[in-house]
């Protein structure tokens, strides 16, 4: 179908899937921030998620689909754009575009790599021997003690470092991505463009800093 081949069609798919993924990271962030409420917060949140049963799997499938579309077309468009610009200028100059816009595919791929690591780390639990399923205790309320699992991990500087770097990449990715969909959907019109871009950047920075705060504060043992 035209949508999957067209230059605008794929751009719209990137925007739609990107927007859904922003929705996902919003919910995920809210959940994660419960770590600052101590063990009662995040453990209750995890317990609630697990109680959803098959819904979790439906959700995971949808996420898989969104990521697949976003990544496939993102890489495909990048390769096409590379092919369209075979020669560089001797003096290379840009006026308005940003570092984040120019590095979308790279920050995206960093986030992808991180995503795989993150799943192996907390979901499959095989990357950090300290938190494998066997040695995670239950908390006082008989729930899985996710809080301890998280704090144990992030007190490890290496693991926290990976998370922080990845969240910086995410921040950069969002700096361009969040405002971009407004243009792609054709909702921006001239003068509003600057405001849209500015709001997109602010939202991206808020998300980024909030995500970075979790490993950073746990590593600094400000939250424990």
């Amino acid at each position: 179908m035209n949508l999957f081949k067209s230059t605008v069609g794929r751009k719209i798919l990137m925007a739609v899937t990107g927007l859904c993924l922003v929705g996902f990271i919003s919910v995920h962030l809210l959940g994660n921030l419960s770590v600052f409420a101590g063990p009662d917060g995040i453990n209750a949140y995890a317990e609630h998620l697990h109680s959803l049963g098959p819904l979790v799997w439906i959700f995971r499938l949808i996420m898989l689909g969104l990521f697949a579309v976003h990544i496939t077309f993102g890489v495909q468009l990048y390769l096409e754009n590379k092919a369209a610009t075979p020669d560089n200028y001797a003096v290379q100059k840009t006026l308005v575009t940003t570092f984040s816009a120019k590095t979308m595919v790279f920050t995206g791929l960093i986030v992808l790599a991180f995503l795989l690591y993150h799943l192996l780390h907390f979901t499959v639990q095989i990357t950090n021997p300290d938190i494998s399923a066997h040695n995670i205790a239950l908390d006082a309320a008989n729930r899985l003690d996710v809080f301890t699992m998280v704090t144990a991990s992030f007190q490890n500087a290496f693991i926290a470092g990976i998370y922080i770097v990845a969240m910086i990449a995410l921040l950069l990715h969002l700096m361009h991505g969040i405002s971009s969909w407004v243009q792609t959907f054709g909702w921006s019109s001239g003068p509003s463009q600057d405001k849209v871009t500015a709001i997109g950047k602010i939202v991206a920075i808020v998300y980024g800093l909030a995500y970075i705060a979790i490993p950073l504060l746990l590593l600094a043992r400000i939250v424990k």
Binding site: T7, V8, R10, K11, L77, E80, N81, A83, A84, T85, T94, L95, V96, T97, A101, K102, M104, H176, S180, Q183, T184, F185, G186, W187, S188, S189, G190, Q193
Partner: peptide, 23 residues
Amino acid sequence: GNCTNHYECEAACPKGISVKFIA
């Protein structure tokens, strides 16, 4: 190539054509 909303085009355009037309 494909448009990825860099907006360099508008900055370079000698007639100041706005990217709102891409929107």
